[in-house]
């Protein structure tokens, strides 16, 4: 009886710690669960604060969607590694609490100041592995944050607007998933990039990026 009660209590605590109390996830996620999405936003808020030199703040960059898309495209083993990293950060406060009362709460439940304090400690930690864990999280989120079209355009490093070339590959192979019979190009469609000349370094950027940053061409 006592064992059963202890198990129930344990299950309750685990549920409360790991699953309950998260806001509903943003719509459209395929892989991430609500806790992971909440953590990503909480980390992005302090890794990439607003009001700085880039127009899109971490919390606005829709990083849960980016990470979700990334995870969905990864093989299972690599997906597991990244999800384990998110879990480690979210609940690592059990072992390495934040500098405030209640510092053992989930990372995403801590105040911004406490989250900053944890990241600062990890980034300068004397243990190399602790630093590597921090760098791994920063890398995963930087890919989405700096890759946000608004930020790339603001920095002038978004991909150029380019008329896609037509080579023998386009003549011979269908788009991925299509049949060879779906190829619509003929030899006369072939393009020669040499005729187009170098791009203008300040020329227009890819329309999908430019749309996110209407201030630039």
């Amino acid at each position: 009886m006592l064992t059963a009660l202890l198990l129930i209590a344990f299950a309750f605590l685990v549920h409360r710690r790991f699953l309950s109390g998260y806001a509903p996830p943003p719509p459209g996620l395929a892989v991430l669960h609500r806790g992971e999405a909440t953590f990503i936003d909480a980390a992005a808020e302090v890794l990439f604060p607003g009001g700085g030199s880039l127009p899109v703040a971490g919390i606005e960059a829709q990083l849960p969607h980016y990470v979700d898309r990334h995870l969905a495209a990864l093989p299972r083993a690599q997906r597991f590694q990244i999800r384990a990293l998110l879990l480690l950060f979210e609940h690592g406060t059990l072992l390495f609490p934040g500098d405030e009362p209640g510092g053992r709460r989930r990372f995403s439940s801590l105040s911004a100041a406490a989250r900053v304090s944890i990241l600062a400690r990890l980034s300068k930690h004397p243990n190399r592995h602790a630093r590597l864990v921090f760098m791994a999280l920063r890398a995963v989120l930087t890919l989405g944050y700096l890759g946000h079209p608004g930020n790339l355009c603001a920095l002038g490093v978004a991909p150029f607007e380019i008329q896609p070339g037509v080579s023998d590959a386009e003549l011979l192979f269908p788009r991925i998933g299509g049949l060879v019979s779906s190829i619509r190009y003929e030899p006369e469609d072939r393009t020669d990039p040499a005729l187009l000349g170098p791009l203008d370094p300040h020329g227009p950027r890819h329309r999908a990026y430019a749309r996110a940053h209407p201030g630039r061409r």
Binding site: P49, S123, M135, R138, L143, L155
Partner: peptide
């Protein structure tokens, strides 16, 4: 390379990291 890949190992976080991003041009 695509800037997000080049920038993954920029130091720091928060304002410090953003200041490095701002220097990518």
């Amino acid at each position: 390379a695509p800037p997000p890949l080049l920038s993954m190992r920029f130091p720091g976080f928060g304002e410090e990291l953003l200041s490095h991003f701002a220097e990518i041009p």
